[in-house]
Design a protein around this nucleic acid. Structure first.
Lengths: 187, 187
DNA sequence: GAAACTATTTAACAAATGATAAAAAAGAAA
DNA sequence: TTTCTTTTTTATCATTTGTTAAATAGTTTC
């Protein structure tokens, strides 16, 4: 997905502001398995996914628990770093070879204080992420594991081809054994 | 909690911008039991809580499931209305007599496009709500019901004195019977 | 293709939670 | 206080999910 489309979907900018923003964005390629963010670090870069799929996870005891998947068009941000300049708890791993757009967050913060349009773009960015977060929260709190699994397949049919079931299970808040059982019962 | 403090905690504004924002804010009192937001409506007002406590809930079949508590200083917003001008799924009920600051969201949207400071204020507002939503999501996905109950008590010790256990149970994602059992086991 | 490795499923039992009903406790009203 | 109502707890049994271990299926490497 092209960077122009990604930017405009969030909030359409005038040519001037858009160029200002794009000046700070660099395209990069990184291989499958690369760990983009590490836990307990302040991340200075955010990304948008041009091509590929990634997961964010955190450790609970020794277990990795996946709590987010990103695909084409998704932003990759460590929210604690982005918002509060503090260490985050999450790690982000590339599940496929990826093409990413990289953006230094300190540059973005400067633009927020300099450019009116970009400030509103940043507002809409946070608002849309908030909507997504709320939807996921409601789904975790209201629906059973089976319902969440079916909803995930509906919203993202190709995920089974792209992501291991172990990651999907922890994303759903259950063990892999439980997911296997759920899948067996659906047949 | 005073409106100046609420505004400044989100993002400190210059006197000018702050007055502009405060011009659109009206103080109101509403009684315990009042339903502030109804499901399937576009809400045109957002609030900040000066005094009191409220809950947001949605229906799952015939059951009300509480997914958020607001207390002094909290904003009350129907996110779907606020962000997308669409109907929300939530209802908001006052659990105590409340003093609220009311703000018409269309006025706020106008200010976002007119005042640079207020645009950045709105950005920080969404960012902080996003941080809170992510924290809650992680807690639902990573922790057991017992852990979530203990964390709630720690973060909000007076909640037991102010909110019925039935609301707390559904907030934790369990039945009231389960919560009773957890409380009994902790003794 | 065989061996080695990884991912997924199945099995068996334990622990946690749900559902329903009833009892007990707490609070409100007469 | 006494009664009535609401809230919370307890008890019982069903269902779901967790844990551990083993079996099967799928991939990669030589």
């Amino acid at each position: 997905m092209d960077i122009n489309q990604i930017i405009d979907t969030i909030y359409p900018l005038t040519t001037n502001s858009k160029n200002l923003l794009k000046e700070s964005i660099i395209k990069t390629k990184l291989p499958k398995g690369h760990v983009l963010f590490k836990a307990n670090e302040i991340e200075s870069t955010m990304y948008f996914i041009k091509k590929g799929i990634v997961r964010a996870y955190a450790y609970s005891d020794d277990n990795q628990i996946t709590f987010w998947f990103g695909k084409e068009g998704s932003p990759i941000v460590s929210m604690q770093s982005y918002v509060n300049n503090q260490k985050g708890y999450e790690e982000v791993e590339l599940l496929e070879d990826c093409e990413l757009y990289a953006l230094k967050t300190d540059k973005l913060q400067q633009l927020y204080l300099k450019d009116f349009q970009i400030a509103n773009w940043g507002r809409k960015f946070a608002e849309f992420e908030l909507i997504k977060s709320e939807e996921r929260l409601i789904s975790l709190q209201f629906n059973t594991a089976t319902e969440r699994y079916l909803a995930l397949l509906k919203n993202y049919p190709s995920i089974l081809q792209r992501v291991q079931l172990a990651h999907i299970a922890s994303y759903l808040g259950i063990t892999q054994v439980s997911l296997s059982r759920i899948r067996a019962n659906l047949k």
